[in-house]
Amino acid sequence: MDIIQAKKITRSFGREPLITHVLRGVDVHVAEGEFLTIMGKSGAGKSTLMYQLSVLDTPSSGELVVDGVDVMQLNEKERTSFRLHTLGYVFQDYALVPDLSARENVMMPLLMRGDPWATAKRKAAKSLDEVGLAGKYENLPTELSGGEQQRVAIARAIAVAPKIIFADEPTANLDTVSSKQIIDLLTCLNETSGQTIVMVTHEREYALGANRILHMEDGMIIREEKLR
């Protein structure tokens, strides 16, 4: 069974007559363990779709079942808990807490899940090692490069071993070398731990590691491309 089942998802903003229909009936199915990329021009509605699938926003209409849960029915508290336990996020601009060290940033979701302090610390170190940041545990975000910060963000997302990782243009602010590393990291995660990944990207080159590419235009999926 698919881990994400979205049917006829719409998302509109504002009210008649000034209503904007950003998503106009999108169907997305993602299989467990799949690496899916979404491509499209700026303003096509990629981010808006990501917010719906990752339970940060609620569709105006349609059906959305994630990991067997009808997320349309959840209240705010339940959605927060669902995100904590099932989903991982990599945002475009790293989104680390500036007051916390790299390791403490990664520890946040672990502690929230109830890991004891020492366990959280150990797991955080392990996932920082995995993204190649051994030795930078105590650095503050400001003491890290953009690529390193994005890797901390990935470490934070994978530390809790979420079922699905969402990444919205994770390389948009990075140079080519760092971008390549981030994409490789995500591809590797998908291949080795079988985590489901949904990623938005502009660069076709970066999309090629995925199983499938969805092409969006004007709030709809216009084409699907199977790679592997």
């Binding site: 940060l56 927060t80 808990s81 904590l84 336990h85 996020y89 989104a95 946040m108 929230m112």
Partner: peptide
């Protein structure tokens, strides 16, 4: 505010 949003986004409760 943005960091507060992100913390809530990754599943940190409001009470924190």
């Amino acid at each position: 505010r943005r960091h507060i949003g992100i913390l809530k986004g990754i599943g940190i409760e409001r009470s924190v």
